[in-house]
Simulated scan of single mutants.
Amino acid sequence: MFSEEFNVRFYETDALAHVSNTVLVGWFESGREPIFKLFNPELDLQNWSLILASYKVDFLEQIFYGQKVQVRTFISRIGRSSFDVYQELWQQQKKCATGTTTMVHFDYQSKQAVAINKSIKAELLANSYSG
């Protein structure tokens, strides 16, 4: 599991006094940074090799300003060239949201998916979700 903690910023709240639903997608992306570094340790955008294929977010509880949030990131599926990232967002010991993102190891020049090498697969497996 990878874990990141964020302060909820005032501007991330909405007129209903809780965190706007659009903010979670950004937090989840930030929580995937350790995974990005497995494929590209320097995060060199000229040599990027991942593409986002889909994402889904489920909102379970309201999230509020003034209390930190934690994003927990796991790998829930690994295929030949793609994998699913399962994430949970926690605040005050409550699971407030979950998300699943499908990422594809991708060659932008050939515009094709590329097999994930064995060493990266092993790192992904080491961070897999056990339910």
Results as ranks from 00 to 15, higher is better:
Leu24Pro: 04
Val25Ser: 09
Val25Trp: 01
Gly26Ile: 06
Trp27Phe: 07
Phe28Val: 05
Glu29Arg: 06
Ser30Cys: 12
Gly31Ala: 09
Arg32Leu: 04
Glu33Pro: 05
Glu33Ala: 12
Pro34Cys: 07
Phe36Gln: 09
Phe36Arg: 10
Phe36Tyr: 13
Lys37Asp: 06
Lys37Ser: 07
Leu38Arg: 10
Leu38Thr: 11
Phe39Pro: 01
Phe39Tyr: 03
Glu42Leu: 05
Leu43Met: 08
Leu43Asn: 05
Leu45Met: 11
Leu45Asp: 09
Leu45Asn: 13
Leu45Phe: 10
Gln46Trp: 06
Gln46Tyr: 08
Gln46Gly: 08
Ser49Ile: 10
Leu50Pro: 04
Leu50Asn: 04
Leu50Met: 02
Leu52Pro: 01
Ala53Ser: 10
Ala53Leu: 11
Ala53Gln: 08
Tyr55Met: 12
Tyr55Ile: 04
Lys56Asn: 07
Lys56Val: 00
Lys56Trp: 00
Val57Asp: 08
Val57Phe: 03
Val57Ala: 06
Asp58Pro: 05
Phe59Lys: 06
Phe59Val: 06
Ile63Pro: 00
Phe64Glu: 15
Phe64His: 15
Phe64Pro: 15
Tyr65Ala: 14
Tyr65Gln: 13
Gly66Ile: 13
Gln67Asn: 15
Gln67Pro: 13
Gln67Thr: 15
Lys68Val: 11
Val69Phe: 11
Val69Asp: 11
Gln70Pro: 08
Gln70Ile: 10
Val71Trp: 04
Val71Ala: 02
Arg72Asp: 12
Phe74Asp: 12
Phe74Val: 14
Phe74Lys: 15
Ile75Arg: 14
Ile75Thr: 12
Arg77Val: 00
Arg77Asn: 03
Arg77Cys: 00
Arg77Ser: 03
Ile78Tyr: 06
Ile78Leu: 06
Gly79Glu: 08
Arg80Leu: 15
Ser82Asn: 07
Ser82Tyr: 01
Phe83Leu: 08
Asp84Trp: 03
Val85Glu: 04
Tyr86Glu: 04
Gln87Tyr: 05
Gln87Phe: 07
Gln87Ile: 04
Glu88Ser: 12
Trp90Thr: 01
Trp90Val: 01
Gln91Val: 10
Gln92Ile: 09
Gln92Cys: 12
Gln93Thr: 07
Lys94Ile: 15
Lys95Gly: 06
Lys95Ser: 09
Ala97Ile: 13
Ala97Phe: 12
Thr98Ala: 08
Gly99Asp: 10
Gly99Glu: 11
Gly99Lys: 13
Thr100Leu: 11
Thr100Pro: 05
Thr101Lys: 01
Thr101Glu: 00
Thr101Arg: 00
Thr102Cys: 07
Thr102Glu: 14
Met103Pro: 00
Met103Ser: 00
Met103Thr: 00
Val104Gly: 09
His105Phe: 07
His105Asn: 15
His105Arg: 09
Phe106Met: 03
Asp107Thr: 03
Tyr108Gln: 01
Gln109Ile: 10
Ser110Tyr: 12
Lys111Met: 12
Lys111Phe: 08
Lys111Tyr: 08
Ala113Thr: 07
Ala113Phe: 03
Val114Ala: 04
Val114Met: 07
Ala115Phe: 02
Ala115Met: 03
Ala115Glu: 09
Ile116Ala: 01
Asn117Phe: 06
Ser119Tyr: 01
Ile120Leu: 06
Lys121Glu: 09
Ala122Pro: 00
Ala122Trp: 00
Leu124His: 00
Tyr129Asn: 02
Gly131Glu: 08
